[in-house]
Design a protein around this nucleic acid. Sequence first.
RNA 1: GCGCGCGUAGCUCAGUUGGUUAGAGCGUCUGGUUUACACCCAGAAGGUCCCUGGUUCGAAUCCAGGCGCGCGCACCA
Length: 881
Amino acid sequence: MCQIGKILVDMEKIYKAKQFEGKIYQKWESSGGFIPKFDSKKKSFSIALPPPNATGQLHLGHATMLAIEDIMVRYHRMKGDPTLWVPGTDHAAIATQNRVEKLIGEEGQTRHTLGRVKFIKRVRKYVADSQGTIRNQMRKMGASVDWTRERYTMDDQLSTAVRYAFFRFYQDGLIYRGHRIVNWCTRCQSTLADDELEYREEKTKFYYLKYGPVVIGTARPETKFLDKIIIVHPKDRRYKKWHGKKMMVPWINGEIEATFISDEVADMQMGSGAMTITPAHSFVDFELAQKYGFEIHQIINESGEITEAGGSDFKGLLVKEAREKIIQELTRKGLVDHIDENYIHNLSVCYRCGTPVEPLVSEQWFINVNKKVRGKSLKQRSIEVVKNGEIKILPDLFNKTYFHWMENLRDWCISRQIWWGHQIPVWYCVTKKKRMCAKPIVALETPKHCPYCLGNKLQQDPDTLDTWFSSGLWTFSTLGWPQRTKDLANFHPTSVLETGYDILFFWVARMILLTTYLLDEIPFKTVYLHGLVRDKQGLKMSKSLGNGIDPLDMIDKYGTDAVRLSLVLGSSPGNDMRLYEEKIAGYRNFVNKIWNGARFVLLNLDKDDFRKKIDYKSLAKIDQWILHRTNEVVKQASKGIEEYRFSEVGLMIYDFFWSEYCDWYVEMSKITQNKAVLAYVLKTVLALLHPFIPFISEKIWELIGEKELLMVSNWPSVNPKNNFPFSKREIKQIIEVVSVIRQSRAEYHLSPAEKIKVTLYGHGLASTLNLNLAIIKQLARVDELVIKEKGEKLKGCLGQFVGNIEVYLHIADLIDISKECERLQKELENVSQYLDRLKKKVTNKQYLRNAPKLIIEQDKHNFDESLSRQKNLVAQLKNLM
RNA sequence: GCGCGCGUAGCUCAGUUGGUUAGAGCGUCUGGUUUACACCCAGAAGGUCCCUGGUUCGAAUCCAGGCGCGCGCACCA
């Protein structure tokens, strides 16, 4: 009878995640298990956590990242590899500054009324709060990060790394200052990198304006005050006579001197084929102006207002106001040819605040990506390490995107006109005694004197660095660089960089760019990119749509383990995934199933049974079968995790535990029980599942009386003693026999209470069937089971076949003959078709020559089996009629 | 415009280099209380793997074209 273990007292029927998770995390953390143990014999494994912005809280994207990284980290830790996962946060320059500006805005302040010092103080407080929230959330997610090594991009040591990096690049001539056209956000009052733009499709008016002898088209007449150059294609016959000519043309503020230039950038097909250029406010025009040495006039200033270039009537007007006024003026002068009201164009907007971006010329700091130093440019180094396979990007289709982006990369503007961030380590001498003092002073430490005139009036460049400049150093700045630390030697390059594909360019590419130069090594060996989490309809989750799911709510409701599974299982790298509550609830059910599987085992076993060795002399077939299957699962799980196929591995273990261990082995073990095997398989599955669902696996581990934490226990290994391929095949047949009987029972609506008689002809398997007689009886609800090696076809019975085994249900009075005939006919047809197909294959010489041996063997086996099945069906039909 | 991805059961999606008669979860339907679990158990229905053609002994998988959807980059005269 069932023996109630003492353990059961703690196990309710339903697993309540909330009760355990907090305590379990504390146990892990205080055990020191998150801190790597050095072992020179083993290969180390390290991940630098992509630092979340310290601007609030974590969302589902972060949760996905934490779940996937934790799987890898826990797997390697269990394997005994020295494993390090460095956590931290990013100061997220523009994003954070905007948040705080909004906050103080509600108090009626601006950063200017507050002043730089007070504002920064305010931001620091905001960041500290946010970091607290993030730490808490990471613990909730179960992330096994090494908290003793937590870093923040604005830490002193990391700031030193930033200065050091800047200094090195400057010394090597890769950082320069120059007047260049940049993307300018008039709201943030700062430059933006090319990839910090987003695009919004917008309907606008498109104006065709008469400019001297040509008609030019523009969506932005407000930039055109001083357009003096008309570009036409050299081959354009219409304008040949004008090449190089100058002429006076009536324009917004009176006449203007225009010059015709021919260049191939002009598209003859487009509009009139002629265009004027605005060098200060268009990237293409700027390049043209540089090529020809045209004058560059700023028309729009940093606040989005018209400058003096617009004349007294327009100066100070905002872009939008100016546009209308200009068109009025031009209409009055009869210079508007026509207006297209429905022009659709892509408006570039700031990725942080959505304000339209103005391209304008400004003096900024840049990283030169094309200049060759030590034989190669930054660009070349970055492309090379991916091309030669030093860095692998998963899924590999992102390789192409990466190369395309790298190859087209322009110099990277790294200065930002905001206050929050690493202030640029450059000083200017304001004493200005000598001419030399005009040169910027770039230094590691804040200089006290001007090195040229020894004057002590120095002013630091007010700008700050692009946030990606500091996060680009993340894999090694967190390990102590520029000092040569033990961590740096042990854990760099990091093993894997796991992040969303949406920051491939922002961050991943920049890390490669900076690291390959500064360290002359790669930042990471593998890049694993996960997809975006979307809602059930496939829409991006956003505040404005109100379709966002807060991971904390879900954890509260379903438990962390269930949330982790729902983010990892059923999705593949690089592909977006959809998340909705039913999905999480489904995985919660699985977690509960594990709880109850364990509950059953604990009900039947004493704690000592969990530590008993398997007695290989007394194994039943079912024990051999489940041990064999466990071996297979262990093997595939390890291989799968090594190959980053987390979803597949998780689903496989899920299936094994539920559909094989619980549905069959546990049920069978109610008849004949091998405690050691029952315990061994449960323990193995718990260990395999630990990286995926750390909390419940650890909890059960504790309940079965293990002293050591599962987190630091050994990863299961394949045991050669557990290989029983024959038993696997035999038990498969038993399972099928049971299934066939169950199907028939269901079909004839036999309630479980109704007992029946069954006769089996084993045809070689009678002894195996006999060994499992009790099991078959119980699982198929058979009252009387007769097993023979072979015998006459039984009349008046429902006959079925499992391989060669004949299965007869003695339910003569219930059988619906015509229905049964129909079923058999249908099946016969099916098998015959299948046989035809196989026959064609097996007799095909090409096939026999080309197909792998294994496949041919399988097909031949199937052929034989189907042939006997066909024979049996025919006999059965005859028997019925 | 250039590049990339997706299209598999009612829904959400897996499907490793081509190889059993294509899978899972949810939902639907029929039954159910058995040494854990109704967040459960047993069983069932449900598919032109978007279409057309090709390569191959063999295609959901590879190639070409088409249709539908999405994304990235560029352009924005």
